[in-house]
């Protein structure tokens, strides 16, 4: 029972990180119908930013956290303006290939600048674990789950109640009609990328605390898993990304505990395949109505 609870909590921990990253994929897809394959690499950008700022410039941690977020947001918005915006009216495959290209570019720049040798993640958290009876939950796990839950609530509130949030939903539903309402679509798209990348920046902090080794391909695997989480929950749907992330995290950690640690990825991808077979639009997806 204790093992099960522990694995459940581990699953929530990993799942929360997947969910944070998945939100970026899903929000961007919702608004520009683009799978931003470079999104995972924003994680890597955030991690190296922390490495540079702390090990080389010795800045205080709190300032570093803020700067990491700013750099991630800046990268996200710049990537959209430079790489995706010019292709907005091109066939979707062009921007998809561009997204893969941007991802490769970021990884290779990191390879050139930082070499492939992994560097230790410079931020750590040394608080005592939370004890509930015989159950002990690590402080990083508690922090990750709390921060992610809070962010998801804030995001939900933002999207459903604020002017900018409603504009985002309007643009994602109907690009042209939103413009006819006086909504500046370019700004709304930038805002979407900014929010997605800020979440990825926070994801990079939480990921770094949990897996403190920074390499140029750091973002590839969590990025892929988060993308799958977004598809699993229904791409373009914000609660779907949260649900998908949690399911992936739980499936992964329970498989590792009870079946085999080598099979965990297979089980996760298997779930995706099964879900897509029966519900191609994802768990919370609403049919696949193509816009004309």
């Amino acid at each position: 029972m204790l093992l099960f609870l522990n694995q459940l909590i581990n699953g929530l921990h990993v799942g929360a990180i997947y969910a944070l990253i998945a939100l970026g994929y899903t929000m961007v897809y919702g608004i520009v119908r683009l799978i931003n394959f470079a999104h995972g690499d924003i994680l890597m950008v955030g991690a190296y930013t922390a490495v540079v700022l702390i090990t080389m410039l010795h800045l205080p941690v709190l300032l570093v956290i803020i700067l990491v977020l700013l750099v991630c947001v800046l990268f996200g918005v710049l990537i959209e303006r430079v790489a995706y915006k010019p292709l907005r009216n091109s066939p979707r495959i062009s921007s998809l290939i561009t997204a893969i290209g941007v991802s490769m570019l970021l990884q290779n720049i990191a390879l050139l600048v930082f070499t492939p040798t992994p560097k230790p993640y410079p931020i750590s958290l040394s608080l005592p674990a939370l004890q509930i009876g015989t159950l002990s939950i690590g402080s990083i796990t508690v922090l990750t789950i709390l921060v992610s839950a809070a962010l998801m609530i804030v995001l939900q509130l933002f999207v459903s109640t604020t002017r900018a949030g409603k504009a985002m939903r309007a643009v994602s539903e109907d690009f042209d009609a939103a413009q006819l309402m006086g909504i500046n679509v370019n700004n709304t798209i930038s805002l979407t990328f900014a929010i997605g990348c800020a979440l990825a920046g926070i994801g990079s902090l939480l990921y770094g605390l949990a897996y403190p080794s920074v390499s140029p391909t750091l973002g590839a695997l969590p990025g892929l898993k988060a993308f799958i989480a977004a598809v699993l929950g229904g791409i373009g749907i914000i609660p779907g990304a949260m649900l998908g992330g949690l399911i992936m995290g739980l499936a992964e950690s329970l498989t590792k505990a009870y079946i085999s640690s080598q099979l965990s990825d297979a089980v996760v991808y298997g779930i995706l395949i099964v879900v897509l077979l029966f519900k191609p639009s994802g768990l919370l997806g609403r049919g696949t109505r193509e816009k004309v």
Partner: peptide, 19 residues
């Protein structure tokens, strides 16, 4: 029409008053 189908009637009207 191009109304925002997944938003409520009130939210649609709010969008009209966006400016």
């Amino acid at each position: 029409r191009r109304v925002f189908a997944r938003m409520s009637v009130m939210e649609n009207l709010d969008m009209g008053a966006f400016t």
